[in-house]
């Protein structure tokens, strides 16, 4: 098997990388793919709690790299999906405990046995970023419709292009359609024309995201959620399906849309 390693990165912190990794990984596994999620945010481990797997951690990424355990021993199987695995970050180590070369080796090994390896990149453009991108053939940039996130995204795209990364796609997260409509938020088109990389999906701003991380169950499992469907569409696009990106996503307020949801979910 020749799997694909995809790094999810952003430059700026807190824009939704970990959320995207958890939901995309889950969406791909729901499609029957074998998936490994690597938390490369050494020292600030988070993907485990978002996935609800924090109680199962014995070994971590640094243990694999320093040879304290076998690769399989540090791979935690998801609670619901048996083709989805997590390699957690070390919590009490520094980012320089790992070398880019070692990450590359690890990703190459995993590619022999899995369809997708998704790497959750830490914020910033230093060592942690270098490690996370080292083994990746593709990159997904996550940004929010805010000036600081967009500027950092542009910087990261520049760095990836300098490393000759050819396959770079964009997720716009936390889009607020109401604000775009009234002209107080940059639109999807605005952001795409600024960053000039292909758009692979738009995720609206939603309380549902917080609620699902509270529970430690990725939102993609919720069949009625608009956000879940947006992530599932991104997974389909990653697999080469051509699905148009809806410009108007139905709002989650209003009686009519609630009524529609009721019909659709039944």
């Amino acid at each position: 098997m020749a799997g694909t390693t995809i790094v999810i990165t952003s430059g700026k912190g807190g824009v939704g990388k970990t959320t995207s990794v958890a939901n995309l990984g889950t969406a791909l596994a729901l499609r029957g793919r074998s998936v490994v999620l690597i938390d490369a945010d050494i020292g600030l481990r988070n993907l485990d709690v978002v996935m609800g797997l924090e109680n199962r951690i014995v070994y971590n990424l640094v243990d694999i790299i320093e040879g304290r355990c076998r690769l399989e021993q540090a791979m935690i199987r998801d609670r619901k999906l048996n083709t989805l695995f997590l390699i957690p970050a070390a919590q009490t180590r520094e980012k320089d405990a790992v070398h880019p070369e070692q990450m590359k080796e690890l990703c190459e090994k995993l590619e022999q046995n899995f369809d997708y390896i998704l790497v959750d990149c830490p914020a910033g453009i230093e060592r942690g970023f270098r490690n996370a991108v080292a083994g990746a053939q593709k990159a997904i940039i996550v940004t929010t419709p805010e000036v600081s996130a967009i500027r950092d995204a542009d910087r990261v795209i520049g760095l990836l292009e300098a490393e000759l990364m050819k396959d770079i796609n964009l997720i716009i997260n936390r889009l607020n359609h109401k604000m775009v409509k009234r002209g107080d938020m940059m639109s999807t088109e605005d952001i795409c024309s600024l960053l000039a990389v292909p758009l692979i999906g738009v995720i609206p701003e939603s309380e549902e995201v917080v609620i699902s991380t509270n529970r430690g169950i990725p939102l993609v499992h919720d069949k009625r959620s608009d956000i879940a469907n947006a992530f599932k569409r991104i997974a389909s696009r990653l697999e080469g399906e051509e699905i148009p990106i809806p410009t108007e996503i139905p709002g989650d307020s209003g009686i009519l849309s609630k009524f529609k949801k009721l019909i659709w979910s039944s």
Binding site: V147, M179, V180, R182, G183, D184, M185, M186, D190
Partner: peptide
């Protein structure tokens, strides 16, 4: 101007 336009 709308703030979205200013930002762009």
């Amino acid at each position: 101007k709308k703030s979205g336009e200013v930002a762009k």
